[in-house]
Design a protein around this nucleic acid. Sequence first.
DNA 1: CGGTATCCAAAGGGATACTG
DNA 2: CAGTATCCCTTTGGATACCG
Lengths: 132, 132
Amino acid sequence: MINDTTTDVAPELACPITPVVDVVFSRWTTPILWVLNEYGRHRFVELERRITTITPKVLTERLRRLERDGLVVRTYHPEVPPRVEYEISDLGRSLAPLFAALSEWSVNLDKVEQARLDYDTRDHHPSRRTSL
Amino acid sequence: MINDTTTDVAPELACPITPVVDVVFSRWTTPILWVLNEYGRHRFVELERRITTITPKVLTERLRRLERDGLVVRTYHPEVPPRVEYEISDLGRSLAPLFAALSEWSVNLDKVEQARLDYDTRDHHPSRRTSL
DNA sequence: CGGTATCCAAAGGGATACTG
DNA sequence: CAGTATCCCTTTGGATACCG
């Protein structure tokens, strides 16, 4: 079983967006949705080649999950050799503004980077403080 | 080491928003950011109590990471007993529209739920197909 | 109060090989 | 081609106890 519908765990007690995050932003799902949304229908191997580092096992798992959640549509063509096509659903497409917003926020990534540098420069180990 | 700045791994080859997702939507960070954004400054125990199921260990880890990434500001008051306050930074606050968009998309969660029911109703085990 | 330290179980996910 | 099946390793995170 990939998603258990019955067990909603706790973080959303304090935060209403946690359930959405769980559906959309689990690992590997963003690249898959992004690709299908930007470049249209893909066969299994095409996805494999585009998302170069994903293994077939994991790709299958994520696609099943996205299909089950209604974000992706899988079409099986019973030919020889078999042909399967994946495309984004209307529901999946409704995430586009969200993705756009995330994409825009990316300009702030260098601030994050800078913050990390600053943080790592400062001393956070009490035992090693040099100043008094 | 919590975040390794040097190793950017692969999914973003196919998807420009993966780095943002990694920064903002790792587990437990959304509840924390949400709470700090909605309800203002919090002390450590206050966060613990609001996000009921988080353990102090994990809360510490997430807060350090958020601080390092510049999304949260930690202020230490050297009193007895010690007092520490966490608040969201300007950079963190700039995520608000994103959070709002996610919150709006939540209305689609019942479609996801329905899709799951449909999927689980259909038969996906070839060996057990009942139709011909 | 605001954390650390330690231990450990479960889950995620990679590598590899195989199949209808 | 489009996956499965296995194995196994690493990481995440929960439980618990303790400390300045």
